[in-house]
Design a protein around this nucleic acid. Structure first.
Length: 215
DNA sequence: ACCCAGGTGTTTC
DNA sequence: GAAACACATGGG
């Protein structure tokens, strides 16, 4: 059992950190192609300035919102898209992201995907960690992780997600923790600068062998 | 100096 | 449709 072995190796990670559904959503947008450390800085600034709400962020002048997004990179894009997300919440859900997420999974997912800057992974992250919907989050680590175990058959987002949905009964705790464990495990993989990983808990079931687990 | 990070949208063959 | 590109700061 892969999940059990990852859990035993890395422990419970308790994703996603955040004090409110909205904070989780902001984090989901800001962490795109960006380390979580940088996201913590940005969210820290937003909290320090008491700006962490759809109404406050949407009302901020462009320069100020860009300054708050700067640590996470792509800050011009992200500030525009974050503003668009906030405006959508204000316009369609009275400024409360909880209202959007309270809809059924498919409805909320479609709506999220219609917002510029929210793709499948970001939408599923919001649904799973902010909205308590049992949908599996697929990211670059997940695709690599699965590929390493099954011989690198190429799969798109939907087919990878379907595989997890078919294999694992929907359960919030498990879906949340499994995704976190895959990311944590993925960070530990081999790269060019680190050609060998150490103490991989899945070493014996890697399809291409431990020396070939890089990207 | 180089590579990587919890992607997404647009442009181009 | 796939593939290539732009977006940008911060850490190892």
């Amino acid at each position: 059992m892969v999940y059990g072995r990852l859990l035993a190796a890395y422990g419970r990670l308790g994703w996603w950190p955040g004090d409110s559904p909205f904070e989780v959503c902001v984090g989901a947008m800001l962490t795109q192609q960006t380390s979580w450390k940088n996201v913590e800085r940005a969210i820290g600034m937003m909290k320090a300035e008491n700006m962490l709400s759809p109404n406050k962020l949407a009302a901020l002048p462009r320069e100020n919102l860009e300054r708050l997004c700067r640590p996470t990179g792509f800050y011009r894009q992200k500030s525009i898209r974050l503003r668009g997300f906030c405006k959508h919440i204000i316009q369609h859900h009275g400024g409360a992201v909880e209202n959007m997420l309270a809809q059924d999974l498919e409805t909320a997912r479609e709506e999220l995907l219609s917002i510029k800057g929210i793709g499948e992974e970001t939408a599923d992250s919001m649904l799973l960690y902010a909205g308590a919907h049992p949908t599996f989050v697929v990211d670059a680590y997940t695709t690599r992780f699965l590929g390493r175990l099954d011989g690198w058959a190429e799969k798109d987002y939907g087919s990878v997600q379907k595989l997890f949905h078919d294999k694992i009964p929907p359960n919030l705790e498990v879906y949340r923790e499994y995704h976190a464990l895959i990311v944590e495990h993925g960070k530990n993989r081999c790269t060019k600068s680190k050609p060998r990983c150490s103490g991989c808990p899945l070493e014996d079931m890697c399809a291409e062998g431990i020396s070939r687990c890089g990207p």
